[in-house]
Computed example of a mutant assay.
Amino acid sequence: MTIHSQNEALMCKVFPSSLGPVTMRWFNSLEMDSIDSYKQLTQAFGSRFITNSRAPLPLSSLLSLFMCEGETLKAYSDRYWEMYNDMDGNYDDITISTFKSGLPTEYGLRKSLTGKPVISVRQLIDRIDKYKRVEEDQLQRKGKE
């Protein structure tokens, strides 16, 4: 759509195709001829749905995360990546170290990350996935006993 950004009529026509049910109801409730430009449409949209926008979390949010007693690796990593995804910026080194430091000292994954460090978030996710599979297998075995 970038090449058509100067065509306001087209932008206004395409805009509704990006809306979900709630925003579509809002869009359909606009009074006929109440919007004169794409800029005015985006301003009206922003004014109506400003509460749905989130400010990015600061990097320090990751520093406060740790795995709770009795929490599964899956639950901890889900919380961690949810918070990570709400941040702006690229902090791979800090991401890796804060995830590791949030694990209990005796935890196998923490020992693995200390003994054989990862150098990218992708590698960290791969290592977490391996440990999650082991944890899930152990939980399934316990459930069958």
Score class of each variant (00 low, 15 high):
residue 38 Y to E: 02
residue 28 N to I: 06
residue 40 Q to W: 00
residue 49 F to V: 05
residue 27 F to E: 02
residue 33 D to A: 10
residue 6 Q to V: 06
residue 31 E to Y: 05
residue 13 K to M: 13
residue 40 Q to V: 10
residue 58 P to G: 06
residue 10 L to N: 01
residue 47 S to T: 08
residue 61 S to A: 14
residue 33 D to I: 02
residue 44 A to T: 08
residue 43 Q to K: 15
residue 63 L to P: 00
residue 59 L to Y: 01
residue 47 S to A: 14
residue 43 Q to R: 13
residue 65 L to K: 01
residue 24 M to N: 09
residue 27 F to S: 04
residue 53 S to N: 02
residue 36 D to I: 08
residue 18 S to F: 15
residue 8 E to W: 03
residue 8 E to K: 06
residue 32 M to C: 11
residue 30 L to K: 11
residue 9 A to F: 04
residue 59 L to E: 03
residue 58 P to A: 06
residue 9 A to M: 10
residue 20 G to N: 13
residue 62 L to G: 00
residue 10 L to C: 01
residue 12 C to H: 01
residue 33 D to E: 13
residue 39 K to P: 00
residue 9 A to C: 05
residue 60 S to H: 07
residue 54 R to W: 00
residue 40 Q to D: 10
residue 49 F to R: 07
residue 35 I to C: 03
residue 46 G to C: 11
residue 63 L to Y: 12
residue 12 C to I: 14
residue 18 S to W: 08
residue 12 C to G: 06
residue 18 S to C: 14
residue 32 M to L: 13
residue 22 V to M: 09
residue 14 V to D: 03
residue 41 L to S: 04
residue 47 S to G: 12
residue 59 L to H: 02
residue 46 G to M: 09
residue 28 N to G: 08
residue 29 S to C: 10
residue 38 Y to M: 03
residue 5 S to H: 12
residue 50 I to N: 05
residue 6 Q to R: 12
residue 45 F to T: 04
residue 4 H to I: 08
residue 25 R to K: 15
residue 41 L to D: 02
residue 37 S to W: 06
residue 38 Y to K: 00
